[in-house]
């Protein structure tokens, strides 16, 4: 009797386990794994005639033989790395200030201030930057009013505008992990660093940054991924000259109906981002599990 009920309990427990696991399994398999397998398959075929496809590496060789494609590819990667580094440089002092200098109400207030821009959509935020930067925009107007410029200044549609937009969009994703790791740093470690004769720079370099390394890396990974895969910001702020790799993918899929080429680009972007993240972890000697926990 008790054995039977024990069995029943165990069955029930296992059923519960699978039911709880089901959403994530479905999500992963239906929305992530299956589409990617299909993408790989699509990228490896070539249209021979109408509705006739054959196996080919043509889409990948096209990428390497057409300089525009891989130039855009390299440019996107470099710009994303630069944006990630700049975001880190700006976010670190802000996070340190929030986590270690402020306490109580001002601390919460400043954290919410960082969060606030993310209550409106990315589109609206990007339009905000356009209002500021465009030829007839606020900054241009102000420069003319102060007499610093004698004609409207166009500040949109260049790399700096893209960079500004990307950093602004990514800020929060760097600040949150940094504040969390810096918060977990015991203040007495910082004091001990000073007590043993260290200058502020020594303390920062030998104690704070090594401690914050997992947070720095997880922030960098998230920001890098978001930047690399960003479509809206480079397109709106960079205009035609933005040359962002996601735009190439979009063009292949939507404008040219060349799904095979688009899929190949998608796979290449995936490989690129994985490779750079892996390299970043290797260089900083961090493990992926530690960074993500």
């Amino acid at each position: 009797m008790s054995d039977a009920s024990g069995n029943f309990n165990r069955t029930q427990y296992r059923l519960g386990f699978w039911l709880l696991l089901a959403p994530i399994v479905l999500w992963l398999s239906l929305l992530i794994i299956l589409p990617h397998i299909d993408m790989v398959l699509v990228s490896l075929r070539e249209r021979i005639a109408s509705r006739q496809y054959g196996f080919s590496f043509g889409n990948y060789t096209a990428f390497f033989t057409e300089p525009l494609y891989w130039n855009t590819f390299v440019r996107t990667a470099v710009m994303s790395i630069v944006a990630t580094v700049l975001t880190l440089i700006i976010a670190f002092p802000v996070s340190f200030y929030i986590a270690k200098v402020l306490t109580g109400r001002p601390r919460i207030a400043l954290f919410i201030l960082c969060l606030l821009p993310f209550w409106v959509s990315e589109l609206v935020r990007t339009y905000g930057w356009m209002i500021l930067l465009r030829e007839t925009g606020l900054i241009s107007g102000a420069l003319q009013w102060f007499g610093l410029a004698d004609q409207p200044v166009e500040m949109l549609y260049n790399d700096v505008a893209i960079m500004v937009g990307l950093i602004y969009t990514s800020m929060l994703f760097m600040v949150v992990p940094l504040v969390t790791t810096l918060d977990s740093l015991d203040n007495s470690l910082i004091e001990a660093g000073y007590d043993l004769g260290g200058s502020s720079w020594n303390v920062m370099r030998s104690i704070v940054i090594p401690h914050a390394m997992p947070g720095i890396m997880s922030g960098c990974i998230v920001v890098f991924m978001l930047t690399l895969g960003n479509y809206l910001t480079p397109t709106l702020l960079g205009g035609k000259s933005s040359l962002w790799f996601t735009e190439q993918i979009y063009t292949q899929f939507i404008t040219r109906f060349n799904w095979e080429q688009g899929a190949a680009f998608g796979i290449l972007l995936l490989i690129l981002s994985s490779l750079i993240v892996w390299l970043g972890l290797k260089i900083t000697r961090q493990s992926f599990t530690r960074v993500m926990s």
């Binding site: 007495s188 470690l189 004091e191 001990a192 007590d195 030998s206």
Partner: peptide, 21 residues
């Protein structure tokens, strides 16, 4: 004299050994 220049050293309550070293 700031703490890093004082000829005193402190053993902290929770020791504050640097865990990354």
């Amino acid at each position: 004299t700031p703490p890093n220049k004082r000829p005193v050293n402190m053993v902290f309550q929770h020791l504050a050994l640097f865990p990354t070293m």
